[in-house]
């Protein structure tokens, strides 16, 4: 069973994603900011990270760098309400950049796609 880390400061969103992804059959861990995410990545092994960008304490961009410096191969999906971070080259190092939507299908499809590619 693939293990996914959801990094999101909005509690309601975080819970929604984890519910939906659990229903999809994934094991889901939650982190409310970048700092927490980096710690969790250090402590656990995740198959995929869904990462919000704008968060208190440590934002997604910084967290992204730290996570990748530790594990270059871990797939990371940036999932943010802001489309303008696409111009930030740091985000290019992520495997996907998805703008938040109430429809989670795109996210689910991207997760499935990335996990399939990884298992090959």
């Amino acid at each position: 069973m693939s293990k996914i880390l959801i990094v999101e400061d909005e509690q309601n969103q975080r819970e929604l994603y984890s519910m939906v992804l659990q229903e999809e059959g994934y094991e889901v861990d939650q982190a409310s900011n970048g700092k927490e995410a980096v710690e969790k990545v250090k402590a656990n092994k995740y198959d995929l990270v869904v990462l919000d960008i704008r968060m208190p304490e440590m934002d997604g961009i910084e967290a992204l760098g730290k996570i990748l410096s530790r594990d270059k191969k871990i797939p990371i999906i940036i999932y943010t309400a802001y489309s303008n971070y696409k111009s930030n080259f740091m985000t290019w190092t992520a495997d996907a950049y998805i703008t938040k939507s109430s429809n989670l299908n795109e996210l689910k499809e991207k997760i499935a796609e990335l996990l399939a590619a990884r298992s090959k």
Binding site: N12, Q13, L16, R54, K100, S101, S102
Partner: peptide
């Protein structure tokens, strides 16, 4: 305005997500 737009987008996304649910 851009920031305000996101201020609006976040709750909207959440609301939509839960409504779908």
């Amino acid at each position: 305005a851009a920031h305000i737009a996101h201020e609006i987008r976040n709750p909207l996304v959440t609301m939509g997500g839960y409504a779908r649910r």
